[in-house]
Design a protein around this nucleic acid. Sequence first.
DNA 1: CCTTGATTTCAGAAAGTTCTGAAATAACAT
DNA 2: ATGTTATTTCAGAACTTTCTGAAATCAAGG
Lengths: 186, 186
Amino acid sequence: MNLPPLIQAFVLHFGEMGSRWGINRTVGQIYALLYVADRPLHADDIVEALGVSRSNVSMGLKELDTWRLIRRKHLPDDRRDHFTALEDPWAIIRTLAEERRKREVDPTLTVLRDLMLREPANGAERHAQARLGEMTEAIELLTSWADQVQRLPDERIVDLLRLGGGVAKVLEVGAKLKLLPGRKEA
Amino acid sequence: MNLPPLIQAFVLHFGEMGSRWGINRTVGQIYALLYVADRPLHADDIVEALGVSRSNVSMGLKELDTWRLIRRKHLPDDRRDHFTALEDPWAIIRTLAEERRKREVDPTLTVLRDLMLREPANGAERHAQARLGEMTEAIELLTSWADQVQRLPDERIVDLLRLGGGVAKVLEVGAKLKLLPGRKEA
DNA sequence: CCTTGATTTCAGAAAGTTCTGAAATAACAT
DNA sequence: ATGTTATTTCAGAACTTTCTGAAATCAAGG
């Protein structure tokens, strides 16, 4: 790998983080490289910059493509595909979040709902089912919230984030104005 | 493994999910088992229920312990440690979220901040630094929001979740009442 | 419809992780 | 102290994921 030190540090770190974020090291590095690049890169640029095999780059690009985190561009007088990363950091955060949700929470919800429908065979199962119910409820609340917030326009989301802990205050006011749904007690 | 079918299905699923959630399969299974159990279990109960090695259970329990997802209990007339999972599903969700943040976003922020302080050596680095700045800003906004919301009492958080996309409406009202910090334009 | 170069696929090699069994350690009761 | 039972550690086995190089496929220009 032969990159300016600042860029190299970022690329390496993002690669390591990638593994924790469920995208593999190479994919993370490719993404990082495209994200900071000041021009579209083609596959061989990436091979050279990262020192990994051509085929590995090809797989990585394909994966980033299915996640819609990069764009394929054709430059005039060049048959090779060129790639750029989405500019907006929110797009990345959103994509990663959606992707993880699809892989990590949706299947769990499906299983939990299915288990809730079964007839418990004995006391142990009855108890277990009650616990599953509590968990299902919490996860459903969380995901349906996430669903709805994700549909808001970006600026609204940013407003919400800027508000920070201040939501509490706004919630109070909201409650007084009867904007909130009545609280169901457990 | 020899468990009532409903419990077994849950335990197996949670094990698989565990790997995606950054906790390994056995750890996930142990947690799931304790979560639905109607009494505290000791290590050998778990070995028998899951059919994994004693040492694996020991490691798993230790890990869950450091994550504070289980409690160690001493029953009278029994020298063995007994374990229970935290009851409240919110506790689990919170813990997993905090843990992941510690492992997955905080280190990134540290690196990003450090890279932002460096003197760019050339045009490419200058461009890269600008991109890193955008990313840093987005991540900081998100994490500081999460920080503040996590400090709210549980019921406030539940209110917020119940509100769903309705936050938009409340934000409008909040803006009119001058509760929101003025929006800085990019 | 053939040539040339770009891209993708895929089987096996390399690297990384999780799990086990055996041995070491700790904790308690006598 | 000593025996007994519970727990932890750790080296290597088993398994999983990632990466490579060679071969197959694809696409544009003549």
